[in-house]
């Protein structure tokens, strides 16, 4: 494999990794703090994508500049994710924290199924496409190959921004400290006066917004169609588990590993590309049984 092909593979891998990270980081956060594996995450991703596509189409038919789509989709996703997250946490999830983990998971599974049909009832069965933003940003030439600027510049940029932003939030703000503390030890934090319910509400909402953002940013590059949520979920599971519980940095590293793994697989052994996330997960867990950056969870006896 010569240097050119290698560079192209790395570039493709990083572009894909950005998308994976955007999708999975929300789920990682929710899992770290609330210990709930949010299956409905895929539904929020899809809704974010549909909304973004709708906004993009509206902007196009109103004749406005496609660049408007960028801030519009961020705002749209934030609002949609925020509202959905708040409502679901407050009216459904709150009642199941006391129950066993399996039950909590199944509630998110039920929400996922409901959201799948809601998508169809609200948006219909036809795929939506709103790619004017990508067209507007044009292509850049790397080693003679045209790449979409959106995919190799914007998306990785947004992913890095999200990572840095989350890190800053979690480590350098009061709210972030409250979330981290609750993630480490819910009981101790509550004993210190932290309102665990509010922390959960906040975390879940942030997670949902991140999922919707992931979908919203993905929408200009791909046709938004029924079933896209379901595929994303399994991939996100792999990232969450490989990263180590609640480790945002771990999610970033895992996303890069998966992105590069997939892209090199397509170049060298195309048939194995779908298996890469699972291979990576198994390999990492063999060497580090608690995930890349995970710590051993002590059990209370």
């Amino acid at each position: 494999m010569d240097l050119i092909i290698f560079t192209l593979a790395v570039l493709d891998g990083l572009a894909y990794a950005s998308q994976v990270f955007m999708v999975a980081v929300g789920m990682t956060l929710i899992f770290g703090v609330m210990r709930i594996l949010n299956i409905a995450h895929g539904g929020f991703y899809a809704i974010g994508a549909y909304l973004s596509a709708g906004i993009g189409l509206a902007i196009a038919s109103a004749g406005l500049s496609p660049w408007l789509h960028l801030p519009a989709l961020v705002i749209g996703a934030a609002m949609a994710g925020g509202v959905l997250g708040l409502v679901i946490e407050r009216f459904v999830l709150r009642y199941i924290y006391v129950k066993e983990e399996v039950l909590q998971l199944l509630v998110t599974f039920a929400i996922f199924m409901i959201l799948e049909d809601v998508q169809r009832l609200v948006f219909g069965v036809q795929p939506y496409a709103a790619s004017s933003l990508v067209d507007a940003m044009g292509t850049i030439n790397v080693l003679g190959i045209p790449y979409n600027a959106y995919q190799v510049l914007l998306l990785p940029g947004v992913a890095v921004l999200t990572l840095v932003g989350l890190r800053w939030f979690l480590h350098h703000t009061l709210l972030g400290h409250l979330i981290t503390a609750t993630a480490e030890d819910r009981e101790a934090a509550t004993a210190m006066g932290v309102n665990a319910n509010r922390v959960f509400l906040l975390t879940f909402t942030i997670g949902t917004v991140l999922a919707a953002l992931g979908g919203a940013f993905a929408a200009p590059t791909t046709a938004v169609q029924l079933g896209m949520g379901a595929d994303m979920i399994v991939l996100s599971f792999a990232v969450v588990v490989t990263a180590g519980l609640g480790q945002v940095e771990g999610a970033a590293v895992t996303a890069v590993l998966i992105g590069l793994g997939r892209s090199f697989a397509i170049y060298l052994m195309p048939e194995l590309d779908v298996l890469m996330p699972y291979f990576i997960m198994m390999l990492v867990l063999l060497v580090r049984p608690n995930g890349l950056f995970g710590t051993v969870q002590t059990r209370k006896i």
Partner: peptide, 12 residues
């Protein structure tokens, strides 16, 4: 048209 939604509600 809506069996997934209804099933989800039942499960919930």
């Amino acid at each position: 048209d809506m069996w997934q939604l209804l099933l989800g509600v039942v499960l919930l």
